[in-house]
Amino acid sequence: MKKFWCLFFMFWPIVALVVCAMAPGMNWWFPGESNSPIGVEIDGLFNLILIIVTIVFIGTQIAFGYVLWKGAHIQKNEKALYTHGSHNLEIIWTVLPCVVMLFIALYQMEVWAKFRVQSTFDQDAVSQPIAEVTARQFEWRIRYPGPDTKFEGKADITDWLKNPRPTDLYTVNDLHVPAGKNVLIHLRSGDVQHSFFVPELRIKQDAVPGTVIPIWFNVDNKTKKYDESIKGFSYELVCAELCGWGHYKMQARVVAQLEDEYKNYLLQLQKEQFDDGVSAESDDDEEEE
């Protein structure tokens, strides 16, 4: 019976391993292939950590199994071993994880810096942010600078973030970006904490009340299908910070478009936003004639 329990408890880690090994192939749980270059690098880090954790998992499970198995062979009259612990063991299992952690910390620094440290950002993208995204309960409000706006330096951008301009264009839950180049948006919150999460682009950034946080990304649409109806490639944008009763409602989309289509989109948006209910009507009438 004792041996049965040994085998029983060894059986489950093995099942877990088999299932995990099958997961990527069967597309279980994994977020699919990344559609941004930085996403590929982040996936690299993820996989590295996954491998390390797997090795540790196998090692510890074998150790556990060994201890169990040995315990199962203890005779009834045998006395338990009394120990004050082992210095050597303590040192090994403190130092080893430290080394591994340190390695991970150093190894990921470059990717982290690329993603989060503002001085490393692509200056072209920084100098012309494409939108301000405001998370609020329970939607994403988006403000684009007018299509003709050219920012003149950092102060001008700061001013734009503080003071909306008459030419700005507004949408909600629908962020359009040009594909295939580095773009920058400014994220803020209108009320509580939210998190801007685009799983397929591997972007996750908290929106914190009171601060404006720049996020850059680059959508390369590597594995994405073109969606004719929206003239672009659509990615799900969700909120990843429980923010209230309607948290689940904060579903939106990021649409990556080719340069021309993106420009057309903004022009169309501009036309709609400045619709006076008369001029557009007459346009329609002309078409009918």
């Binding site: 709609e272 400045f274 619709d275 006076d276 209910g277 008369v278």
Partner: peptide
Amino acid sequence: GRRPIDLYS
């Protein structure tokens, strides 16, 4: 809504 027609209405 912020369109001129909205404010007009």
